[in-house]
Structure formats: C-alpha cells, structure tokens
C-alpha cells in the first residue's frame, strides 16, 4: 500500500503537560482519511507537525514520499491546507487573498478559482475580515482546492458552518477528489460527516493513536453483544472485549472489537449464550472506543 502520509514514533511535548508520544500514522494514497478525536486529543498539533508548522522532538514524518520538515517547500507546493482557524490576512479583499495565494502556488487554477468563487457566492471586493464564518470557511476551501493539491489536509473545515454551507464545501471537496484522485486527511468532530465521506478512520485521544483502520472494518468489527451466563474469566477469546456491563441478573452486554460472524461458536464452548449482535454506528463505536481506552489508561 502506497502511503501519502507516514509517521513513525513521533514525539512532541510542548511543555504544558500535553504530549504526543510515539505516534505512528499511515494515510494511504487516494484515501479519504477521517481523523477523529475529542477536544484536546492532539489532532491539530499532529496536523501541524505533519506540515512542519511545529517541530517534532523525535520521530520521522514522510508526506507524499518526502521527508518533513526538511522538504517543506516541495511538500507544501503539493498540499492544500485548511487550518482550524482562519489564517488569511483579514485586511485583504477576497480577490487580493486569491492573488496572494496564486502567486505562491505553481499549479493554481485561476479559472476554477473564479468558478468556485461564483459557486460559493463569494464577493471579490469584500474584506476577508468582514466575511461571515460560513463565507470564510468557503474561501479557505477555495484557496486549498484551486491550488490543485495532491494532498488536502483539512483541520475541522466545516466546524461551525451551517448545514447548507457544509454541504457546499463538502460537495466541492468530493468533486475535486473524484476528478483528481487526491488524498484527503480531514479532522472533524462531526462523526456522521466523516462516516458519510471517509474510507479510512483514525481515532486519537490524549496524544496517542488508538485506532487506525478502513472505515468498513471499523464499523463492521465493533459490536455490542447480549451474552448470558458468561464466565468471569475469559480465555481464548477470538475478539477483543472492550467493556462488559451486567444487566438482568445473568445477562451482560459486551462491547467488542474485531468481531466476525464465525466467532459465534465461541459462546457455546464457553458455556454461555449469545442472544443478540447489535451493529454500532461510527459515533457509538467512537465513543465506546474512547471510553475503553481511557479505562485502560
């Protein structure tokens, strides 16, 4: 599998108690890679490390086959970035912001930028600082897309946007990805949004990567099981039990990971009964995964 982003044993400690430790990340080329995590998990810091905006204290980062931060210029010429907070100079007009961005990006597509400007309903002579949150979000996405990047790194690009604007922004993104086969790393709190568009998912908490796998595998492998007469001690379990909670006397609910249907045979052999297998959506899986990770820690 060819990777667009790869980190190995990444370490960063800013000195405020938070740290990123031994972070390894693998974003396949062409993937829509959803990056989930609660506030303060370290997603934005990780993204800044990936793009050379912060210096890692240890570890190795490769982006589009090039080493970061040593090859920062080459990488950033192929990468579109939408940061968590607007980063465009607020005193410029929209047209001036476009001109500035165009000057620094060799592959800038002026015609498409003009088309997106019209499509997003942005007015060229308005000051960036006077734009609404939704308009600013659109402008940032426009700048990232019109430079025709191979990789898009989007840090909460739709956070705080209304559903209509969010749909416009995501549609433009998906259209670009489908026509250019670009890789997208998108960090978001909006779990259902990622569930809809991403084919890979990574979950981060407290500076550590706690899951990274294809979306289908993530969704298919996390289940809630209703189990009766389960022994206290489990041996030779073919899946990972993340949580056990009792109900109705002899009944238990198990949150499991790595489940496949052929594992049902485990229960009769263990002297217990499996009554029900409940599918979890991404949000349930995400929440349960975080809970189990925090309990273990």
């Amino acid at each position: 599998m060819s990777l667009a982003i790869e980190t190995r044993d990444l370490r960063y400690r800013p000195g405020n108690g938070f740290q990123i430790s031994n972070l390894s990340m693998h974003v396949p080329r062409g993937a829509l890679y959803g990056f989930l995590g609660p506030n303060g998990a370290g997603k934005t810091t990780t993204i800044r490390l990936l793009l050379g905006l912060l210096p890692a204290q240890a570890g190795r980062i490769t982006v589009l086959g090039q080493t970061m931060p040593a090859e920062h210029v080459a990488v950033m010429s192929r990468t579109g970035y939408v940061p968590e907070r607007p980063h465009v100079y607020p005193t410029l007009t929209v047209d001036e912001a476009l001109r500035l961005h165009a000057a620094y990006h060799d592959r800038w597509d002026g015609a498409w930028a003009a088309e997106l400007l019209r499509q997003f309903g942005l007015v060229g002579d308005r000051k960036v600082g006077a734009l609404s949150k939704g308009e600013t979000g659109k402008l940032m996405m426009l700048l990232a897309l019109a430079q025709q990047p191979e990789l898009l790194v989007l840090d909460e690009p739709t956070d705080g946007l209304d559903p209509v604007v969010r749909r416009d922004v995501l549609e433009a993104l998906l259209e670009y990805v489908s026509t250019h086969q670009a890789t997208v790393l998108i960090s978001s709190h909006l779990v259902h949004e990622l569930e809809r568009i991403c084919d890979w998912i990574a979950v981060m908490d407290r500076g550590a990567m706690i899951a990274e796998l294809p979306m289908q595998e993530f969704k298919a492998g996390i289940k809630r099981l209703s189990v009766y007469n389960a022994p206290d001690q489990l041996t030779d379990v073919p899946f990972t039990v993340l949580r056990r909670t009792s109900f109705n006397g002899s009944g238990e609910q198990w949150l499991v990971r790595g489940w496949t249907d052929d594992m049902r045979d485990f229960f009769p052999a263990a002297g217990s009964t499996l009554r029900e297998v409940i599918d979890l959506d991404l949000e349930d899986g995400f929440v349960e995964l975080l809970r189990s990770f925090r309990e273990v820690k």
Partner: peptide
Amino acid sequence: MSQRPSQWRVLLETQWTWT
C-alpha cells in the same frame, strides 16, 4: 486572475495595504 502575479509584487501590495 489567469496570469499569476509575482510573489514579491503581491507581498508589496499587502504591505502597502497595511502601511
């Protein structure tokens, strides 16, 4: 917008705006 402006020129324009 079809022709890319020079980097120095656009930076000059931004600094002119600010100063």
